[in-house]
Amino acid sequence: MPTVAPVEIDGFVVRAGFLKDCAYFASGEGEILLSGQGETRLRPHKAGLLAAVPSIDGSALVTSGDDGCIYQFGSDGTPVLVAERARKWIDLIATGPSGAVAFASGRTAWVHLADGREKEFALERAVGGLAFAPKGMRLAVSRYDGATMWWAGTDGDPVELSWKGAHLGISFSPDGKYLVTAMQENALHGWRLSDAQDMRMTGYPAKVKSFSWSAKGKYLATSGANAAILWPFSGKTGPMGQTPLQLGTRNETLVSAVACHPEEDVVAVGYQDGMIMMIRFADKAEVQLRRPGKGPISTMDWDKEGKRLAFGTEEAEAGLISLQD
């Protein structure tokens, strides 16, 4: 049976996950808890914490706040100031290859490279989301009426992808063939990058706020419905013409967070009532990992071995779930 070890945290849990073997929990109140051999509690930001993202190799955590600062630190808890934009709220960050960090405020996005160089990208409308391609220094920025892609290391012209509406969260598929955005309306939109073919994914009763690619990139798991909706991306046309998997259906409770297992075709599904289920793709077999709690699951992530799951809620609950062999 799975075991749950509660963790004390002081607010809405923005992000939970692992830096190698060390679990971390970052709250909107500005507290960052590192839980490894012991516990370390940090408050690098002068006020609240707005975003937290692990580095590509999982060795460091990058955070931003309403103090305009972007910090990076490893499991030893030593914060390093990456960049600063005085009097700006930095609520969007993304990590890329070779230590690159992208961040945004308003209608401007920046990429900070490991050697200290920075590149600025100006948009006509506010930035909705940031994502690096799985290979190379290509940055995608979601915005109103579509997305824009730049090569951060060169001065080439951007690639514009258009679709009416406000585009927020954004993600490349693991093979780099597709780009997907979560929209302000209850839908996803995607593009096949080889020919900019549009892909429309609708039918959600609520906004999609969480998505996660399966281990081999064959499925994109999403929140926003009373089940985890997994869109198939294994064919040449992505999810178009295919029926998504629906896992963990509950009649009146919406899914608030999803996290695909790093190795197996399994997904952790968190609900608005705080319950967490683990569900297998092939036969929809379910295992309850956590009973309902005080508030919606806001974040989840697996360790590299897929044996521990870190989670947090909107109501200052957090913990580590360990699976038994």
Rank of each mutant, 00 (worst) to 15 (best):
I229A: 09
F211K: 13
S162N: 11
L179K: 01
G235S: 14
D155P: 14
L193K: 04
W231D: 02
L161H: 08
T154C: 09
R192D: 02
Y204C: 08
Q242C: 10
D175C: 08
I229R: 14
M201Q: 01
G235E: 09
Y178Q: 03
I229P: 00
D157C: 07
K207W: 12
D157P: 15
E160A: 08
G224I: 10
T154Y: 12
G169T: 09
H167N: 12
G156W: 01
G146M: 05
S234R: 09
E185I: 12
P174F: 08
H167V: 00
A228G: 03
P174R: 06
E160H: 15
P232E: 01
S162Y: 12
V159N: 07
L220C: 09
A152M: 06
T148C: 10
K236Y: 02
D175I: 04
W191I: 11
S234F: 08
S173T: 00
G217K: 03
T148M: 15
T202W: 12
L230Y: 08
A166D: 15
E185Q: 11
G190Q: 04
D175N: 09
S173W: 02
G176Y: 02
S214A: 07
L193F: 01
D195T: 06
G224H: 11
S223F: 13
N226A: 12
T243S: 07
R200K: 14
A206T: 12
A196C: 05
